[in-house]
Amino acid sequence: MRSKKTVLIVAAGALAVCFAGSIFALDGATAARGGESTLEEVLYLPSGKALQRLSLGYSSLLADIYWTRAVQYFGSRVQRSTRYELLDPLLEITTDLDPHLIVAYQDGSIFLSQQPTWGAGEPDKAVALLEKGIRNNPEYWRLYFTLGFVHYVDRHDYKAAEQAFRKGSEVPGALPWMRVMAARMAEKGADLGTAVALWQGVYNNTNDKELKQTATMHLDSLRADADMNELDRRIQLYRQKTGALPARWSDLIRAGLLPGIPLDPTGVPYKLEANGQVNIQDPSKFKFLGEFRNK
C-alpha cells in the first residue's frame, strides 16, 4: 500500500516536471526553427489547386486555416516590416481552396495594396486578386467597391476606379451610392471628400481589427487635413479684416470667425504658429497627414 502511494507521488511529480520541461523545450524548438517556418512551407507547395485535390474534399476547412495564416502573417508585420513576400501566395492558395471566401478578397486586397509598412505595397496584385474574386462571385457588388478603392487610392487610376464603381452599381442589390461614387470619379478625380467616403466604406465593410485601425487613421488624417484647410481660410479672413495675423485662437473667436478652440479628431487643440500656420500637436498620431492639405 505504501509502495503504491510512492509510485503515485513519483508519477504525479514526473508528470508535472516533465510537462513543464516540455513547454520550455517546445519554446526552444520554435525559436530554433524560426517563427515563420510553417508559413514558409507554403512556398514548397504554392499551388492551391494541388492542395485542393490533396484536401480530400475538406478544402473549405483548409482555406479557413490558410486565411487565418494570412491574417496572422499580416498582423505580425503591419507597421513593423516592409517585406510581405508570403502574403500574395497565402491569399492565392486561400482563394484557390475556397473561391467564395469573400473576406479573403476584400481584406486581403487592402493588405496587399497599402504602402509599406501598412501593407505589401503591391496594388497590381491586389487588383488581380479582386478581379479573381469578381470572376468567382459576380453577384457580390462590394468587391467592385474595393476594386474601385484600390484603383483610386493606391493606383491613382481614376478612370479604372470609375469603371469599377459603375460596373458594381449595375449588380442587382448594389447600394445607390456606388453610382454616386462613379460620377464623382468621372468629375473630380482626386478629392478629399471622395477619399473620406472611400475610407469610411472600407471601415464599414471590414471586421478585421488591423484594417479598421488603418481606416480610422486615414479618416483622422483626412479630417485633420480638411480642418486645417478651413482654419487656414479663416486665418486669411482675419488677416484681411485686421491687417495682422492672429496670435492665438481667442483672437479668431473674438473676431467671430471661430465658435471655440478648434480640436483635432483626437480631441487635442490645433497649434497656431507665430507665422499664422496651423499644425497639430502630435503628428505621430496622424500618419497620413498632408495628402489633401492645400499648399
Partner: peptide, 8 residues
C-alpha cells in the same frame, strides 16, 4: 530541443 521536447 525537439529531442528534449519529445522525451519530456
Amino acid at each position: 530541443m525537439n529531442t528534449l521536447y519529445a522525451l519530456l
